[in-house]
Design a protein around this nucleic acid. Structure first.
Lengths: 249, 249
DNA sequence: CGGCACGTTGATCAATGTCAAGCAGTGTGG
DNA sequence: CCACACTGCTTGACATTGATCAACGTGCCG
């Protein structure tokens, strides 16, 4: 997993045709399968959109007639139950592509996507995706690979939910978030700014926000991790790993 | 979802070359993307294996250099934690193909697969799969579709685990199993023989077997479903739907 | 016969969900 | 500028769930 990805903004046009060929994210994303020449096809069939925090990228149920590529900021995938319980499922970062499965197979989105902060996404219509996968079959394989990775992640999560305590799962989540959002100081202390509200953290852990709140207080008391609003300070990140391995509840 | 799939056994050869072109499952499975001509390629590159109950089809960590197609019986996918907790993740039935993601993307299996009862699986080496996806790109799309369906299922399960009680989740599981294994009588009563041990049922629900045992007794007492060994009798299947919709715990 | 795995049940306790209150921050309209 | 509503977070008290430990019966198999 790559750590913090800083996104070089498109210097060319403001809202359209920023030229994917030059996009810093391309090398990290599934588009890396494309040659420079093919990348121009991509650039031609693409437009970009800027979203404010909380704005919706797409909604569950809407037709998957385009894919979205995160260019900057981060995007949350949520699924909402029939009873209105919303659960956070995945975070998407610059370079991540959303909706290709639906776009290729012709389904509709099964979850909502929402900007976690101000962010930019590139929108690519199905035609273009179709043309690219026709020209370069590797792209399709890349998408299959990605999807199966996500499937594995989701299943791993199911195993964790079945066998670990809330506390252990939260420790695990913190470790993962730290890999992306954390900064490690020379003395080994890690600090980060959480990209999520407590409610969303709770939902990623699979519990209620009150319970998470208590877990946080305890971690704080015990000196494992110090929380202040969205800022966290973790003296020894290994203590989290330990929490996670002890596990059961 | 198709209901009970009866599998016509290969009448041709005993252990090899049963001729996929004539396999009843082909019409239901992802191989339906293949033309009859292409199906002969499949048949040529395939061999079949008969497994006793409990035997392993493949193990987590072994290289994904072949795919497995369930011909008869059913197969369970399990994932085992670092601490040895094993969790049942998915049931595979005749027509289901296992391991294509790993085979195409070149990874190794992330879970164990085990015969739930006596069963037959067909084994197709990577070469053949490769040739087929080259010749017929639709097959790849089919696999992507399937994987993304599994992803959606897994995520749905995560949402359920986060929002529903054990009892409600078990009710849901029963409904799903009834779709495949159940028989509905004229008076509306549904009966089925469970394909799983209590332990495995518990693990699908995400709880311990003792807890499941208690849930079962209560359902029995309350007349929602009557259990006797692996046999279940459900007077009104809709009462399960209700359990599931009330849900919270 | 003696393990051994499975299933059921009971007793007990920790973990967690629920309900409710209060507090801080933020934006709005008067 | 203040009152107000609103939202997110924390904390407490309480009820419930569900996990754990343990005992016991059963069927299977060597």
């Amino acid at each position: 997993m790559p750590s913090t990805v800083s996104c070089r903004r498109n210097r060319t046009a403001a809202s359209t045709r920023p030229g994917c060929a030059g996009c810093f994210n391309r090398r990290l994303s599934d588009w890396k399968a494309l040659s420079d020449e093919e990348a121009t096809i991509l650039a031609a069939g693409q437009s970009s959109r800027t979203l404010a925090s909380g704005e919706s990228v797409f909604r569950a149920g809407s037709p998957g007639d385009r894919v979205f590529c995160v260019a900057s900021g981060s995007v949350a995938l949520r699924q909402t139950d029939t009873e209105g319980n919303s659960v956070l499922l995945q975070l998407a970062y610059p370079g991540d592509v959303l909706g290709y499965a639906e776009c290729i197979t012709g389904g509709s989105f099964s979850s909502d996507a929402e900007a976690l902060g101000p962010c930019t996404v590139c929108v690519i219509e199905r035609d273009t995706v179709q043309r690219l996968t026709d020209v370069n079959p590797t792209l399709g394989v890349q998408f299959l690979k990605r999807t199966s990775q996500h499937l594995q992640d989701a299943r791993q999560q199911l195993v964790h939910n079945a066998t670990l305590s809330n506390r252990a799962r939260f420790a695990h989540l913190l470790m993962n978030l730290a890999e992306r959002h954390g900064r490690r100081r020379i003395d080994g202390e890690t600090t980060m700014q959480l990209p999520l509200s407590r409610r969303d953290l709770a939902s990623l852990v699979g519990t209620r926000h009150e319970t998470l709140s208590r877990i946080i207080s305890r971690l704080d008391q015990e000196g494992v991790a110090y929380f202040s609003g969205r800022n966290v300070r973790i003296p020894r990140i290994d203590s989290l790993r330990q929490e996670f391995q002890i596990g059961a509840g």
